[in-house]
Simulated scan of single mutants.
Amino acid sequence: GEYTVADIATTEGYEFNTGYYGGWGLIVIYENSKMNSRSVTVFDGYGYVKVNNNFELPVSGFNTTQNGPVNIKIGVMAGEGDRTYSGDFFSIQKQSDNSWLRLRHSGNNPNNFFNSSINIDGPRNPNLLNSTGVDISAFMVPNPNNSVITNNQTSTKFRYGTNRDFYIIFLIAMAIDSYIPNLEVVTTVANINGTPVGSGTLSVLPEQEIEYKIKIYNNGTEAINNAVLHIPIPFMTKYIEGSGSNTIFFNPLPTPNTLTFNPNEGASGSIIWDIGTLPISANTSDILGELTFKLKVTDDCNILKNLNCIPAVVINGTSSGVGAITGIPITDLSFTQGY
């Protein structure tokens, strides 16, 4: 959307041989399931930087992705940086040799980072070359061969300072490709009474058997420990003893990898697959495990004619586990209903 601000309370004039400045900025942290997972850190405060003063800001608490390129995006808001005065800088420490990389974007340079420029995506009004004391920028940090931030990294540092111009930083934000556990379990109906089914609405009759197929994926960027599936049996069906079969498609096999049926858990019992550790996949479409089992639809008239009972067979299974790196728990995550 379009955001407009007016009537900002500011003061005109000079103090301590410098003019006042005024402006506004907005940072939005959002979630998009179609994008890579990122760890976002925001520092909201007030840092006054004067001549010949350098500062370091340590950043920790993130866990970068386990393999592949690490993408880094930085956002900065600051005030009082002058376009005509150089000597101010904003740097990030390189993990490859602990040296400092002076940052820049398309509207400034490494020796005059705070230069009253606004560098953001999308249109703005007014669109000025010199924003007279207001710096707002969002830009990608070059990270060739992960030399700045690498895989499995959990901390870094910023350094900023000046030898001529002075300025005020009031926001620093960093978004970085990170670990996240993302377990997906998809359930589908394989056949009814031995006959394969297609898509669309399916119907069954009393005493008919339904075979289900459960597929497991790790769509995250870290392994998942203590992965367990719980599948309560719908009250209108009964589990066919011995029909459960579990298969693992990776090596080494996880432990304990046990498949059991507990008749005392839930209204009609529950299937429990205690898998163990699920590794990350090179391709998120890789199936890590598969479970098949059969249910028989009840012929109990007392159940079928009960007006309070919905005549449907629905598998409402859940999965749980914990991220191997982050320790983020997955608790009672519902299965995805397939076709």
Rank of each mutant, 00 (worst) to 15 (best):
T4V: 14
T10W: 15
F16K: 12
G19K: 14
G25N: 15
V28S: 09
I29A: 15
Y30G: 05
S33G: 04
S33H: 04
N36W: 11
S39R: 04
V42D: 08
V42Y: 06
V49H: 07
K50S: 13
E56C: 09
F62V: 10
N63V: 09
N71G: 11
I72P: 08
I74E: 13
V76C: 04
G79Y: 14
G81S: 11
D82S: 12
D82A: 14
R83I: 15
T84Q: 10
T84S: 13
T84C: 09
T84Y: 14
Y85H: 12
S86V: 13
Q95R: 14
Q95I: 14
S99N: 11
S99D: 11
H105W: 15
G107R: 12
N108L: 08
N109S: 14
N109M: 13
P110C: 06
P110I: 14
N111M: 12
F114C: 07
S116F: 06
S117M: 09
S117Q: 10
I118A: 06
G122Y: 06
P123W: 02
N125W: 02
P126L: 09
L128R: 07
N130K: 08
S131G: 06
V134P: 00
D135F: 02
M140H: 02
M140A: 08
V141Y: 00
N145H: 07
N145T: 08
Q153V: 03
S155C: 02
K157G: 07
Y167M: 03
I169E: 01
F170T: 07
S178V: 09
Y179H: 13
Y179K: 15
I180W: 08
N182E: 13
N182C: 09
L183I: 09
A190R: 11
N191L: 06
V197T: 10
L202F: 05
S203T: 12
V204D: 11
E207W: 02
Q208G: 03
K213D: 05
I214T: 09
I214P: 00
K215S: 05
V228E: 11
I231R: 05
P232W: 01
F235D: 04
I240F: 02
S243Y: 00
T247Y: 00
I248Q: 01
F250K: 01
N251V: 02
T258A: 03
T258M: 00
L259Q: 02
F261S: 00
I275H: 00
G276M: 05
S285H: 05
F293A: 01
L295H: 03
D300H: 03
L307H: 10
G317L: 06
T318V: 12
G321Q: 02
V322I: 13
I325L: 11
I328Q: 14
I328P: 05
D332Y: 00
